[in-house]
Each structure stands twice: as structure tokens, then as C-alpha cells.
Design a protein around this nucleic acid. Structure first.
Length: 454
RNA sequence: GGUGCGUUAGCAAAUCGGUUAUGCCCCGGAUUGCAAAUCCGGUUAGCCCAGUUCGACUCUGGGACGCACCUCCA
């Protein structure tokens, strides 16, 4: 039985889908005005893992990850770059897809863009207005009246009083309450036509929060199973989504809220404002994408994850061990779920997606492969790895990686073997040492000499 | 100030009220011409203080420290 830590309950709960064997999952995606960094990589990889585990468990899952392609930062950046909003967002959507593909992240079933769902957002705002939860302020913005919604704060555990209205929230006099948030931003004269839509409240564009509410209910229904995102979205974004969706539809919005932990650098949250972020493509110049994926999955998704070269180096060595065990093994069959390792793996995954434990099982399995040379164990290792989107490449290809001239290495090895034949061990060792200096490790075996890059 | 989360061996990171986590590193042995890889074995834990218990790293209470949210943020 699958258990999920539900932020709404602050507890692990058994997962019961609304419709048997079916899962509807929405995850907040990126605002596309720049390259994705490792924090974004974590959301994508974590929920990709969740997506894969539901599928492996026999569920029919529909996964939606939105794209925010209209927003203040986008408008500002496009103006800076002197390009259109569409050019800018398309460029970074393409880049995001490249990064996600490299990390082995499967495409969600839907990737709705906010700009394509403006009519749905307007309909929802109208419904909120009709329900007495939204009002147009003097400045033209349409705001959500937070105090009119009883359940406000139930996700984040914050009470309106605790939020100390106005202390850190910029007070806009046109709002009825400082904590009211904007649903529809009135258009400004200096903005491009591209960011203006007609509405009964005048020209303008949607607020951030309404995007997810509208796209979620349009694609998954007014009530769906799982909503995910980074822990920083809990408040106010997800709290506001609940207020909007439940306020408009008068029914529960989401059953399970999942939040992944942050990627940190030097024990601080990786973020744009601290300027301590590494983009995915930057990291991939130095490390294999699968190593990065492994690094992310090696920790539990709710734990903080410290990023450093040392940690990536460590992950690389660990993953080397798994691939080394698979060297020379054939194609994997399907997972034999009755086998003991697979059962431990499943138990770990069913326990709130404990990939750290699931990977530990893979190492135990690697030990068995090394010890017994069992083809079944190797197949099982490969198959279980594939469930997590790992170990799917040719082991030799992975271990050798890419770098300077492979042909030259093969030549050197031949020369060394000749020296060995002649019992000229000094020469053989010299060649080996020379290769090692270039990061090439040789491994002699009965079948010949293998090599890999460290 | 309010709220939430965390503190496990040299590093990373899980589980669990009593029994080997796991990976990297380190030490010893096997193997090897020597290595590497692999196998076998080993060293190094549970922030502090109290309590519950036959027994606590694991439960309860208090404290210290760290992180996050309360503003856009994955």
C-alpha cells in the first residue's frame, strides 16, 4: 500500500485515488525567463520518479506540469533583451526540454502554458466574483478577498493573524486587506499588446496563482489527487490555489499535497536572489546527467540536498559501482516482483517514495551480482534501476564516458600488454601510470584488459 | 516576532524501541607480476539534558544549534 506524506495533514497517509487505479497529478513548473538551475532539476526529477513509480505500480496516471509564460519577470527580461515575450519564453522552454531530456525526465502528459488558458482563468475569476470572493479595486486590479475564505491557511498552517498583515507584505492601499492577492492585473500603458487580454474588468493579464488553479481544474478536474511543487510554493502560492479553486468550485481541490526539499549550496537554499545557483547545463558540462539524477534520487525527496563537487564526485563513484556490476550482463527482462530485493525496493518506494532506501537495495543486489555472477540478479538490478530511470545505458559506455582519443588508449593498452608478455613490468606499469594521470584506470581480467574513466 | 522542518559515524544518507543500513573514504585479508575491479572482514554513529521502558539513535518533555516560510521563488 502506497503511503504519501501529505503536507495538508503533515503526516504520511495511505494513498487512495479518487478513481480506482487512476491518478491525476499536477506539479508547478517553471517560469520561463532563464535557464533551469539545479533546484528546478530536483522538482523535475523527483516528480518524474513519482510519475514512473505510479506507472510501475499499475496506475493510469495523468501528469500535468505547467509552464508560466506570462509574468513580471518575463516582461522585464523580454524588454531588456529587446525580444518578444513569445521569443523569450519559447527559447527557454526549448532549453528546459533539453535539460529535462538529458536528466532522463519523461515529458508530462500535458505541459499547459498559462497564455493558452486565459479564458479559463477569466471564467474562474468571474465565478469567484459571483461567489463574493473577488472584487475589483480602485486601481483596476481584481483581487481575492482572503478574509472571505474560511479555510485560508489550512495548507501552510498559518493563520491570518500570524501573518501579521502588512508587516512584510507591501501595503497596497487599493486592497481591502494587505494579504489579498491579485487575480487580474490591469494593463499598463507602457506594456506591449502581447501582454494584454480583454476582460470584463478591462484589459490586463492574469495573476500567477490563478494560472495553476485554472489549468489544473481544466485538465484534471475540479477535484484531483496530487498536487506537487517545491517547498517554497506552500505559501502563498498553494494556499492561494486552494482558496481560488475551493472558493470557485465549492469542493475539495486536492487530496494530497507533496513538496520537495530545496537544493542547497553551503547549507543555504539555492536561489536566484542569493546568486548561488548552478544551471543544469553548467553542471552537465562537468558531470554526466545520470550522475546528477542519481545524486538527486540518493536523498529522500523531502530532505534538503546539499550541492557540491565533492558530493557529485561521490555520486559518480557510487553509480560506477552499480554499472560495474552490470558489465557484461545481457538485456534486462521485466522486474520479478516476487524476488526479495524487488520486494524491499517496492516497500521502500511505497513508503513515501523512499528512493534512498530503494537505491540501497540496488547496492545489495549489485553485491549479489558480483558474488554469484547470477544473470537473474543482474537482470533484476537493471530492471529495478530502470524503474527509477537509471542504469539504462550500456555499462561500458557509461564507465568509459567521453573524453580524449579512445583509439589512443586502446593503442597504449596493446603496448602495455606486449610489455607484460615480455615480462617487462616496468614498462607495463609506466604505461598504466601514464594513463592513470589522464584519468584512465585499467582493469586486467582473464578476458583481457578493460578501461574506464574516473 | 509567528510558523514549520531538521540535527545519525571522516563525508553523504536511510531504517528501526532490542538484531549488518547503504555509498564514498580508511585499515586488514583473499585475488593479482604489481595494481585496478571484485570478494571476505574491520574501525568510526546517533547535538545536549531529563523522563517513559526490562531495554531508546528510535517515544515524551525541555534546551542548544541549523534551515525554511511569513515578499517573487522549484
Amino acid at each position: 500500500m502506497l503511503k504519501i506524506y501529505n503536507t495538508l495533514a503533515r503526516d504520511k497517509q495511505e494513498f487512495t485515488p479518487i478513481t480506482p487505479n487512476t491518478v491525476s497529478m499536477y506539479v508547478c513548473g517553471m517560469t520561463v525567463y532563464d535557464y533551469c538551475h539545479l533546484g528546478h532539476a530536483r522538482v523535475m526529477v523527483v516528480f518524474d520518479m513519482v510519475y514512473r513509480w505510479f506507472k510501475a505500480s499499475g496506475y493510469d496516471i495523468t501528469y500535468v506540469r505547467n509552464i508560466t509564460d506570462i509574468d513580471d519577470k518575463i516582461i522585464r527580461r523580454a524588454a531588456q533583451n529587446n525580444e518578444s515575450i513569445h521569443q523569450l519564453t519559447q527559447r527557454f522552454i526549448d532549453a528546459m526540454h533539453q535539460d529535462a531530456d538529458a536528466l532522463g525526465v519523461q515529458r508530462p502528459d500535458h505541459e499547459p502554458r498559462a497564455t493558452q488558458f486565459v479564458p479559463e482563468m477569466l471564467a474562474m475569476i468571474a465565478q469567484l466574483e459571483a461567489n463574493g470572493l473577488a472584487y475589483q479595486a480602485a486601481d483596476g486590479d481584481v483581487n481575492y478577498a482572503v478574509r472571505k475564505f474560511d479555510g485560508y491557511g489550512k495548507l501552510s498552517g498559518k493563520s491570518l493573524e500570524d501573518l501579521r498583515a502588512g508587516e512584510r507584505v507591501e501595503v497596497t492601499t487599493d486592497k481591502h486587506d494587505p494579504l489579498d492577492f491579485v487575480l487580474w492585473k490591469h494593463a499598463r500603458d507602457d506594456e506591449a499588446d502581447e501582454v494584454k487580454w480583454d476582460s470584463k474588468w478591462g484589459k490586463g493579464r492574469p495573476g500567477w496563482h490563478i494560472e495553476c488553479s485554472a489549468m489544473g481544474s481544466k485538465l484534471l478536474g475540479e477535484h484531483f489527487d496530487i498536487h506537487g511543487g517545491g517547498a517554497d510554493l506552500q505559501f502563498p502560492h498553494h494556499e492561494n490555489e486552494i482558496a481560488q479553486s475551493e472558493g470557485a468550485h465549492n469542493c475539495q481541490y486536492v487530496n494530497y499535497w507533496m513538496h520537495n526539499g530545496f537544493v542547497r549550496v553551503d547549507n543555504e537554499k539555492m536561489s536566484k536572489s542569493l546568486d548561488n545557483f548552478f544551471t543544469i547545463r553548467e553542471v552537465l558540462k562537468q558531470y554526466d546527467a545520470e550522475v546528477v539524477r542519481f545524486f538527486i534520487l540518493r536523498a529522500h525527496y523531502r530532505s534538503p540536498l546539499n550541492y557540491s563537487d565533492a558530493h557529485l564526485d561521490d555520486a559518480k563513484k557510487a553509480l560506477d559501482r552499480l554499472y560495474t556490476a552490470l558489465k557484461g550482463s545481457g538485456e534486462a527482462g521485466g522486474v520479478d516482483w516476487n524476488e526479495s530485493h524487488a520486494q524491499r525496493f517496492k516497500a521502500a518506494m511505497d513508503d513515501d517514495f523512499n528512493t534512498a532506501e530503494a537505491l540501497a537495495v540496488l547496492f545489495d543486489l549489485a553485491n549479489e551480482v558480483n558474488r554469484t555472477q547470477s544473470a537473474e540478479a543482474a537482470s533484476q538490478l537493471k530492471a529495478l534501476g530502470a524503474v527509477l530511470g537509471l542504469l539504462e545505458r550500456d555499462p561500458t559506455e557509461f564507465l568509459q564516458g567521453t573524453g580524449s582519443d579512445d583509439a589512443l588508449i586502446v593503442e597504449q593498452i596493446a603496448a602495455r600488454n606486449a610489455a607484460k608478455q615480455a615480462k617487462n613490468y616496468a614498462e607495463a606499469d609506466r604505461i598504466r601510470k601514464e594513463l592513470l594521470a589522464d584519468g584512465i584506470v585499467l582493469e586486467d581480467s582473464a578476458a583481457g584488459t578493460n578501461w574506464r574513466r574516473v
